[in-house]
């Protein structure tokens, strides 16, 4: 076991899979000699050669198309989109092509591609670098969408994603890259996709979150505990498909729930969760299921990030409304 940050755990997962399967290829903008702009691929080109780990010309749609083509030749591409804010450049490759490969070939072809990309706010990037655009991906059938919130989860989930035979979008929150370390096994291990994780147990309220908001929710839960509320926090980990079983079991136990997302309210990850709960567990509910989300504007210019991004106080405020309903 070693203490690793999330980015180290990601590098480690890539290394393990490059070693484990000669069909794994890692590529993208500045991921070779430079090791990626966040150093997620640090040392990989040196260890595995330019044949397996290589820079591409600057074009995201090119990277997406290349991944599809390589997968048709039996490779298992793990491309990086330097920032997920640039995903619009590669939308057709992802949603129009990659997601439909199995479907439109009647199952003859599949595309075992894992697209990694950093996203998320709170680190004062220029425009188009921090947006939470995951709902663009969850809206497209054919894609699995993963958002880890801890180093341990990141490694296990990335390995599972790479080994998965279908396209996976793997989103890495910028603020979590180096925010803390934890024990991460050095060997390969997998965490099943589509499985949520109960990060904290409780019996009065369920908070459902993913990405950075898991940590804001845990912080809120701690504060609420001091005020005598026992709060359960579920980390979705995979936002498409949702782990309905874990969510419903928890809500049936607590009778109250809120859903927290960093994305704008109109981007509907939380809305999906709320709908699933009301469809399946309305009779267990003691209060309406509320959402905590960012407001419906474009991601703010960095100077206004602090107020715009949901934080643990917003989570507490909404939690109290539900607890005292």
């Amino acid at each position: 076991m070693a203490q690793m940050t999330m980015i180290q755990a990601i590098t480690d997962a890539l290394r393990v899979e490059l070693k484990n399967d000669e069909n794994v290829l890692v590529f993208g903008e500045d991921i070779g000699v430079n090791g990626g702009v966040f150093r997620a691929t640090e040392g990989l080109q040196k260890e595995f050669g330019v044949d397996r780990v290589f820079d591409t010309p600057l074009a995201e749609s090119g990277i997406g198309g290349l991944a599809i083509g390589l997968s048709l030749q039996g490779y298992r591409p793990v491309p990086e989109i330097q920032f997920f804010g640039f995903v619009y450049e590669v939308m057709d490759s992802i949603s129009g092509q990659l997601a439909r490969m199995s479907y439109r070939s009647g199952g003859v072809y599949n595309a075992p591609v894992t697209i990694r990309s950093p996203f998320g706010g709170g680190v004062h990037t220029p425009e188009m670098h921090s947006d939470s655009l995951e709902s663009l991906m969850t809206a497209q059938p054919g894609l699995t969408v993963v958002v880890p919130s801890t180093p341990y989860d990141a490694k296990g989930l990335l390995i599972s994603s790479i080994r998965n035979d279908n396209p996976v979008i793997f989103l890495e929150h910028l603020k979590l890259y180096r925010s803390f370390r934890e024990e991460v096994p050095e060997e390969a291990y997998t965490i099943p996709l589509g499985k949520a994780d109960v990060k904290r147990e409780g019996k009065d309220l369920t908070i459902i979150a993913y990405g950075l908001m898991v940590h804001e929710s845990l912080k809120a839960a701690e504060e609420l505990e001091k005020e005598g509320h026992s709060v359960e926090v579920i980390d979705l980990r995979t936002i498409q498909p949702l782990d309905i079983e874990t969510i419903i079991a928890s809500v049936e136990k607590t009778g109250r729930a809120i859903v927290v997302q960093e994305a704008q309210k109109q981007a509907g990850i939380a809305a999906n969760v709320v709908a699933e709960i009301t469809e399946r567990a309305i009779l267990s509910l003691e209060a309406p299921v509320l959402r905590v989300a960012a407001p419906d504007t474009v991601y703010p210019f960095p100077q206004a990030e602090g107020v715009w991004l949901p934080n643990f106080k917003d989570v507490m405020e909404t939690a109290k409304k539900v607890l005292t309903f």
Partner: peptide
């Protein structure tokens, strides 16, 4: 002056804001 989120909201659309905003 520091920018505010409400200012950004004001700038989102020309004319009237949609109801959610």
């Amino acid at each position: 002056p520091k920018q505010t989120v409400t200012q950004l909201m004001d700038n989102m659309y020309k004319g009237e804001m949609p109801s959610n905003l």
